[in-house]
């Protein structure tokens, strides 16, 4: 299939899904109380986006996501570089990381609530905690992806440490670093959402779980569409840069 054909088929599939979402509930094939027609959901989304309390919730959630990300990325990156660059630390900690990954981090939420109360700090701390592990392993993978040959060549031509860092490490790691950031953001966003849905007084995650409990399906689906759209758009934007940065590799 050519590029154009692929895109056309994808658009056709998307149109099919959206049409089914609109038409099936409209014609009572599925219960519109459980799945409101797409049109109703979108008009509800429009209404919600004009409300001040929704603006406030979006602001809080966005701030939590950004602050948690700013904490987790440098912290995880430093730890990841340490276990990648030091053979000994790598040998000690890498096998443990795999166990840590299979543990549901949400069970530690009660500890964050006890330590910070139900506050902004509790959500940020929990999200940063879950994200740090992801950043750590991605950073370690990125460092390890740098070919030793490149470093050897640079050294034998007399490159300084700073030059090796800026001219060898950074460009070779760039695509993987962007991928690391992208995946970390997915986990970071999920962490904030779980923390807000679990115990919160504000934020979009809190609103979504409230709408679910009160069976306000149009509001609930509008929230799901809004968050999904934000997440997918951010992800695609990073992937676009990722593709540009790795063009030279092949």
């Amino acid at each position: 299939m050519s590029r154009a054909q692929i895109i056309m088929t994808r658009l056709a599939l998307l149109a099919l899904v959206l049409a089914a979402w609109e038409l099936l509930p409209r014609h009572q094939v599925v219960n519109p109380l459980l799945l409101p027609p797409l049109g109703d959901v979108l008009s509800m989304l429009g209404k919600l986006l004009l409300q001040a309390r929704v603006h406030e919730a979006i602001g809080v959630t966005a701030a939590e996501v950004v602050v948690a990300f700013l904490i987790a990325v440098p912290l995880g990156a430093v730890l990841g570089v340490l276990i990648a660059e030091s053979d000994y630390l790598g040998e000690v900690f890498k096998p443990m990381l795999f166990y840590v990954f299979s543990i549901p981090k949400s069970i530690f939420l009660p500890m964050f609530i006890l330590a910070f109360g139900i506050t902004f700090a509790q959500k940020v701390a929990y999200a940063a905690f879950t994200t740090t592990f992801v950043v750590m392993i991605s950073a370690a993978t990125a460092v390890e992806s740098v070919k030793q040959d490149y470093i050897l060549v640079a050294r034998s031509y007399g490159a300084t440490r700073a030059q090796i860092l800026m001219r060898v490490y950074v460009p070779s790691m760039m695509p993987l670093l962007l991928e690391a950031l992208r995946i970390s953001m997915i986990f970071n966003f999920t962490g904030v959402m779980i923390a807000e849905m679990y115990a919160s007084r504000t934020g979009i995650g809190h609103m979504i779980s409230g709408w679910g409990e009160n069976f306000q399906m149009p509001e609930l689906f509008a929230g799901v569409i809004l968050l999904s759209a934000v997440a997918v758009l951010f992800n695609e934007a990073v992937r676009f840069f990722e593709a540009r940065c790795s063009a030279w590799r092949t």
Binding site: I6, T190, M193, I194, M197, S209, G212, F221, A231, V232
Partner: peptide, 24 residues
Amino acid sequence: DLLLPVFSSLYAVPMVILYPVFTA
């Protein structure tokens, strides 16, 4: 070629926001 990129895009959505839908 057709579907894999679509699935990896959808993977960015924090799944937990769907849980209220399932409880409803």
